[in-house]
Design a protein around this nucleic acid. Structure first.
Lengths: 73, 73
DNA sequence: TATCTATGAATGAACG
DNA sequence: CGTTCATTCATAGATA
């Protein structure tokens, strides 16, 4: 629900509050909540990226600076 | 091993020495060693922080989540 | 049974 | 330094 409401990177306190609420339904740690938000946000971006990459493929001369990418090797 | 021995923020020389040793097992640069120590230290503290937040958890305003839930099956 | 998919977890890299 | 991001690993469940 919080995520749908727009929350993407909750801070430590928010994480703990969410964890406390979820704890009512089973064992859970802040770490789990943290990972969940990280993964959801990341995978949301992944899909967006995939779509935009195919649709408007940028010219090959474009050099992207300062983007967080791992070197191929 | 060095980390377990207490090393947390190696200086440039120490990093180079560690890098040289690890180089025996594969390609590696000083920055990799640098990042490794940074991350390990940071995540050690993250864990501490999470735990401390749980311990003196401030009163949480009761929020009723999902009063209506779909049956699991 | 083999392949695919979704997701929690983890880690290297880098930002502010 | 604390935090965020990109990518990869591991595996349970779905699908063929």
């Amino acid at each position: 629900m919080m995520y749908r409401g727009g929350m993407r990177t909750p801070n430590a306190q928010q994480i703990e509050q969410i964890t406390a609420q979820l704890g009512k339904y089973g064992k859970i740690e802040g770490k789990n909540v943290f990972y969940w938000f990280q993964n959801h946000k990341a995978r949301e971006r992944q899909k967006q990226k995939r779509n935009s990459l195919v649709l408007n493929s940028p010219p090959i001369t474009t050099i992207t600076l300062n983007t967080r990418m791992k070197p191929i090797l």
